[in-house]
Write a protein that binds this DNA or RNA. Sequence first.
DNA 1: AGAATATATTCTCATATGGGAATATGTCAA
DNA 2: TTGACATATTCCCATATGAGAATATATTCT
Lengths: 113, 113
Amino acid sequence: MARAATTSDAFNAVAEPRRRDILSYLALQERPVGDIVFTLGLEQPSVSKHLRVLRDVGLVNMRRDGRQKFYRTNAEAIRPLHEWTGEFERFWKHQLTRIKERAEETEEEKENA
Amino acid sequence: MARAATTSDAFNAVAEPRRRDILSYLALQERPVGDIVFTLGLEQPSVSKHLRVLRDVGLVNMRRDGRQKFYRTNAEAIRPLHEWTGEFERFWKHQLTRIKERAEETEEEKENA
DNA sequence: AGAATATATTCTCATATGGGAATATGTCAA
DNA sequence: TTGACATATTCCCATATGAGAATATATTCT
């Protein structure tokens, strides 16, 4: 088996830096593809391909208006990632405490030396 | 260019479901490789390879003790992902409000019909 | 030294990628 | 209908993947 498809879930889709840029850009308000191309300075086909991936995993919604298509980030789909990473919050808080403790121990050793 | 390496950053490393499983397992306390193999039911070489990726991006730390190697999740390295996804929190909260509003509008339409 | 244990690396392979270039599709206007 | 505009898809290619199998490395014990 090769690497999981980028379209297999939000984790894979979001691994691409440009897709993260697009999601950030489309979070505040919907935008037509051309705006994304212009603002992020990417090639149009590239943007279309990224949007396709994002749509497939539900990270963006699309609305057609004439010949334009307006995309917008579906923040709700990012929530699971936030929750998964949030599981580790208590650990990094503990780790900081431990690092601090270790630093204080080192200070004591210095004093004893 | 192909897809970015899994070792290029935490986002890419974490896209693999097994690596997420490993990170969760190693968050609470350090464990030797054999424990991961046994608990998660993966092949030993597979676990070693995943650990290699996780180490390369700083998501786990390693300590050797005799012939065993103890790995442990470095939660701090997950923090950037939590923070990036956290940027969208205000949007999904707004979205929920909007969905609620839309539902209420629909109720009104029903009443008017 | 030699054997057993714990972990890591190498190899092959099917598969997917993202970029670039070219082209296709869909929509509006004249 | 023809042309212009907006977006999407297809093709090619270099590159990386994860699994499996085999093998290598490192460490301890006898």
